[in-house]
Amino acid sequence: MVERRPLLTFTQHAVLIVGAAIFVFPIYLAFVASTHTGTEVNRGLPLLPGDQMQENYAIVLGEGLSTAGAPPIGLMLMNSTIMALAITLGKLAISLLSSFAIVYFKFPFRVLAFWTIFITLMLPVEVRILPTYEVVAQLGMLNSYAGLSIPLIASATATFLFRQFFMTVPDELTEAARIDGAGPMKFFRDILVPLSRTNIAALFVILFIYGWNQYLWPLLVTTDESYYTVVMGIQRLANSGDQLPQWNLIMATAILALLPPVIVIIVMQRLFVRGLVEVEK
């Protein structure tokens, strides 16, 4: 927009500010709630931060809420991180390899294989959750990191995106690599993966958040507190039986649960944007 129209500029900014405010407000409230005592919060939510911040965060990080049957949040954060990272890295590795196979190798039923993967896009975790649970239980993977992450690793989305990207890599590059004596896996490692850097960064962000936000699946496969993840942990905290939920502590947990994805986005976005600016072709 090169036009200079003050009214338009004003309207644009007003819309943006209102939109941002609507988006940020709940998070702000959660933060405010996490800085007051439990009684203050239950009386009615104040709009300004209180002075209980240190105490509240010390409790959730250190002791946990024994009354709600939840471990200290540090452990849950670590569990969530392990699960999200395992899912993300697993998905990236498997989808890179499978799209490499689909694009660069001729094997029987190649098209069928691709469409089978593609169709699973229509089956989210929830649809197949009972059979998956059965399989995981039979394999004895309940209450383990493997049980938390492996069933969620197969990814049609990432496979599809990498396939689309690989198909744009010029054939001549493949041929040059063949003449340079690079076998298939060398070509994959030395050329395809480095070229996919920006795609990998973008997918890392998306998949990490996907893994981090898993709720139903961890709820099903973990009964042992030491494997609770933070997202399902919040729910445990809120279901405190007869007592009033300790909203100040729950909100402190929510704020802490928010931080890792935010950090991932901030860190990876730099890489992502730099990748976008340096167009390679």
Partner: peptide
């Protein structure tokens, strides 16, 4: 192709975009 003791120059150059000139030649 790598065993034939030939080298080829392509129409679109087919240089590896993420490698330096040195590495392109040395690969």
């Amino acid at each position: 192709p790598a065993e034939r003791d030939i080298s080829m120059v392509f129409q679109n150059y087919a240089l590896y975009p993420h490698m330096t000139v040195f590495n392109n030649m040395a690969y």
